[in-house]
Design a protein around this nucleic acid. Sequence first.
DNA 1: TTTTGTTTGTAACATTTGTTACATTTATGG
DNA 2: CCATAAATGTAACAAATGTTACAAACAAAA
Lengths: 226, 226
Amino acid sequence: MNEEIFNTPLFNGLTREEIKTLLESVVCQYRRYSEGQLIASAGEVCNALQIVLKGRVKGEMIDFSGKVLKIEEIYPPKPLAVAFLFGQNNRYPVTVSAVVPTLLLVIPKKSVVSLMHNSEIFLINFLNAISNRAQFISGKLRFLSFKTLQGKLAHFLIEQDNIQNKNGRIFLSKTHEELAELFGVARPSLSRAIRKLHHQGIIRCFGKNIEIINWDELKNIGNKTG
Amino acid sequence: MNEEIFNTPLFNGLTREEIKTLLESVVCQYRRYSEGQLIASAGEVCNALQIVLKGRVKGEMIDFSGKVLKIEEIYPPKPLAVAFLFGQNNRYPVTVSAVVPTLLLVIPKKSVVSLMHNSEIFLINFLNAISNRAQFISGKLRFLSFKTLQGKLAHFLIEQDNIQNKNGRIFLSKTHEELAELFGVARPSLSRAIRKLHHQGIIRCFGKNIEIINWDELKNIGNKTG
DNA sequence: TTTTGTTTGTAACATTTGTTACATTTATGG
DNA sequence: CCATAAATGTAACAAATGTTACAAACAAAA
């Protein structure tokens, strides 16, 4: 039995013995994939829970015209597409393949239901997993709902201040390039937006450190959402 | 017992008797709200499942500066914030209030867990509800990821054709105003985008009817995502 | 230190979208 | 049928962002 199984958030709060017993009570299997091998195509029905135990897996969105668009990577010991096992349209939204040699634990939908019946802890963990996913996407969506770049930036800075809790002194752990990517804009545009806030006397910049000076104004800018 | 309870998707596949028995086995209550009354504030911990049985409920997002931003309305017999009952950050993302006099069925989180234990059908229904929500948001996110208006429009038209399945003949059930709102752009901008596709010979317009002529080009436009 | 590559600042210009305004068409009620 | 309101087409201009290019600053390695 692979060691990573015991670290999966889905089995959080269960002892090793309990996990073993649970898994022995249902049908499930290991599956190995070689580098680059296809795991599931976008649109394919998702009828099993898959947990990455070794290696790495990526999801790619393929466009109407066949161009590859976006990538999300999943590392052990995380499950894969939890929010697409149930629901009306339970199909993979992306094409999934192994980045490196990968080991998956595959648990058929029926077995997942059995597990939820046999263990309330697993049930709660599974609900948490889906909910976390929904909440994560929901946050992203809210972020994108800010129409202007200034709005996104202001929102981001305020959020970062909440997280870092350094009283208006924020350290950017990402490069401008990465931030621009996150915001969905070009890098020079982000530079401009930062410069503008600086010139307006709302923030002060020292390299990767930013200090918020005028809170009221910053919050007002975050205002314009659409 | 309110009639709408038997129509809730969460009790789909259960007989009236089964639903009655189930609900009598757990703690839950009705709650009435008058017009405009606050049901839950954004940020408040969500520790009960709420089902709208009568009336109407709205969710409003409130901004850093206190301005109201977006509204989503929920009608009977739908549940409220299913994706925020579990998960790490199980707090209401929006402020919820009653639009008209409203009756809610409130089922505490613990009772929900009991229900899932007592009825596999309810369990599956609940999983479906959360998953549907996640899938819905996920789709919206993918939609917003198209950077250009032309891209969004192209994506929308192709999607509509898939849904309506009329071989490239699409009927718009929404006004341009509503579509523009959906796309997050101004109405004249949407008009321009449509006109452009028209002038390029990619689509033909007859009032609310649109016909796709050049599929390849349309798909190529949807290509530009970011 | 020098060298090299990465990150950042900034400018000029192109493109896209927003805003406003108004004419035209299309529904709707009387 | 007319009268009115709503929805749509379109133009002119403003504002925001993308694109490209290059220089300056910084970091890591030789």
